[in-house]
Design a binder for these strands. Structure first.
Lengths: 396, 396
DNA sequence: CTGAAAGCGCTTACAG
DNA sequence: CTGAAAGCGCTTACAG
């Protein structure tokens, strides 16, 4: 293995100079630079990044924790994240919890042991109150709340839920079914209170902001006096459950005439509808929630409420870089970090897309003030599975 | 930061002993081990993997190069690969070429600079003859041939193509359309000869074994005297192209009554068929090639020819471990490695699933003898989009 | 079974 | 602008 020392000897300079040339920083005279470059070429020198990372105490690796990369939404997010991180000189390490049957804590340990520079946390996990803050390494949460010291980025699900509900209300539906994730994810969201789950006491650390979609959706329908039921999917990692949920919706509520469901479940609902001879959208309307490409494959183009995956990924990457920089420079203790959060005036100006539609007071899902939290607007894409013909702007 | 030295001091031992305890190898007396463990706990010691990796010259990172993780097939493969690698103590680095607009060479550079221990190559790239062999670092190819020094793993596409064609032949189709990938990927496959592409001379380095699917499919149909056409997708990374290809199939060949296409294109074909009032499978049969979950979402359950993603992933991971071990122990030169390949008697016994159906002589797609190459059988899953009612075993 | 010591290949103040 | 030297936190022969 030819190393810097060899290059230095060949060029008749010190390793410091070689280092400066390799990294292109610092001042090196042209003649020196040329001599070094020639020596590098001659010896076919390849810098050893392992050594470099070790001296700098950086890996340039960010782990993205997701339930499963098989799921089209997380595949999409991972793709966008890889791009967003790459642009910032960071590589992406796949950390899925369901594909690998691996606990989140294993990945957190890697972070602790400095095998990664940071973690983007986008999977479900319940830990005691100070678990996340005590890690004291760069972590950014996606679509969840992990405590005041952990910045988070998520879609504006209140808006998403309202949009979906409005679309139904405006077209005069009579019985709506929502297919959604496990309600257990919602529990600690209620008022951010501590709750008891078996013998474990859990503080409001694992709040799951997407509950806002559910709450906003339900409230909008209730205000319009439209009957509504919820069907639960146990795990988003098992494809089969989406199909079962779709089946259950039709079996349990034969008179349903509107469904909002995650893309995959929505696609299966179309199959159920076709099988049962229900006409879409005249007899039954379907909205896909999340808006991945699956919504386009379902035999009929689905109307969908979509997350802006690219914007989410950019925000996550940006926050991650901030966290990593904060770590390498100040090296603040967990306590300091927590204090900093309190004094921060919420999301950075210019970063937070202005709320196109402000949600009414909704204490159950509100984050505490001062938390670095970025909300990304959602949007709606009309397909052939709904009847709304008006302007999108009227859906507010 | 508390390091090994601190632990050693606290426990009154040398760092060597601490190292032994941390890694659980070597012989350490119980009392020593206890003392060290206590000291580690007391000081809240976290081993620094960066330092560890540096001394060992290992990162435990494997890059998986795919066109895009958004594509359901590659998402599926990535999920399985992550599991298979994780079981072997290897982490997965996402390296997509389309999501990031990143050349393969960037990832190869990371490999050279030892930012990763190895690369699994599953995306298209054309390089001069000795490009891959000259890298002399662990590389395993998926579904492609990168030269004799690079082991490869892929599905038995000959078998897959034959299965699909038989299914059509047996049900008496009259006009078949195949939607498939860019034919440019096929060019160097023809006889493994060197060809000229513009001014660049390309040796048979980038052979693309999936062409065998195409060849076997075409040949089987020709033997049965069934008219056949090919529609080309430019890039698998652009979702929209699948839809366009589906549309084009119906427009160009209005009398088609059988389609085989990648999952995504097949799903769009179903939409086209529904839109045009073509009944599936009575009037039109569809086979999805690859068999991801998309085949289940298309409004009707699609019959599909599927790759055994888990088996592929296991084989890839196994080969990767072999490559990495070979690297750390022997440190052979590229020339030696090449010689080794020649003398190796093909795939390891017990690793190669016995070919359930031997392809007839097919020189155009045959690998050279002695190349480490593993073929994973494909299978067929009957859905509602084909008419075959017989036993699967009769499709040979 | 344990310890002293060299070494992994870079980066980075610090002198000059 | 350049060089000598310390240091990053481990692992690993090598003595004992």
């Amino acid at each position: 293995m030819v190393g810097m020392r060899d290059v230095a000897r060949e060029a008749g300079v010190s390793t410091s100079t070689v280092s400066l040339v390799v990294n292109g920083n610092g001042y090196v005279s042209d003649s020196m630079a040329r001599r070094v470059s020639q020596a590098m070429q001659q010896l076919n020198y390849v810098p050893n990044e392992l050594a470099r990372n070790f001296s700098r105490n950086r890996t340039n690796l960010v782990g993205i924790i997701v339930p499963t990369i098989r799921h089209p939404f997380f595949a999409s997010l991972a793709a966008s994240l890889q791009r967003a991180l790459y642009e910032r000189q960071l590589r992406t390490v796949l950390c899925s919890t369901a594909d690998v049957d691996q606990d989140v804590s294993q990945y957190v340990d890697m972070l602790r042991r400095r095998a990664m520079d940071g973690i983007i946390m986008g999977a479900h996990a319940v830990y005691p109150a100070n678990y996340w803050s005590s890690i004291d390494r760069p972590i950014v949460a996606f679509d969840r709340y992990l405590g005041n010291s952990i910045p988070s980025v998520g879609s504006d699900h209140s808006q998403g839920g309202r949009l979906a509900a409005q679309l139904f209300v405006q077209t005069g539906v009579r019985h709506v079914v929502e297919i959604g994730g496990p309600r257990t994810h919602y529990q600690t969201a209620a008022g951010m209170q501590s709750i008891s789950l078996g013998s474990v006491r859990i503080a409001g650390q694992t709040t799951f902001p997407p509950i806002r979609y559910h709450l906003a959706f339900e409230r909008t329908l209730r205000q319009a006096g439209i009957p509504y039921n919820y069907i639960e999917i146990e795990s988003v990692a098992r494809m089969e459950e989406f199909r079962q949920a779709a089946h259950k919706a039709f079996e349990t509520y034969p008179d349903l005439d509107a469904i909002v469901a995650p893309d995959l479940a929505a696609a299966f609902c179309v199959q159920e509808a076709i099988g049962r001879g229900r006409a879409i959208p005249s007899d039954l309307q379907v909205i896909a929630y999340d808006g991945t490409y699956v919504a386009d494959l379902a035999g009929i183009k689905l109307t969908s409420v979509l997350q802006n995956v690219d914007a989410v990924a950019n925000a996550l990457a940006r926050q991650m870089v901030t966290e990593i920089q904060g770590q390498t420079s100040a090296e603040p203790t967990a306590e300091q970090a927590d204090k900093d959060d309190q004094s921060a005036e919420g999301p950075q100006p210019g970063m937070l897309p202005k709320p196109t539609s402000q949600a009414p007071a909704q204490p159950a899902a509100q984050l505490e003030p001062g938390v670095r939290n970025e909300l990304i607007p959602m949007s709606i894409k009309l397909g052939e599975s709904t009847r709304w013909q008006g302007r999108l702007e009227d859906l507010r």
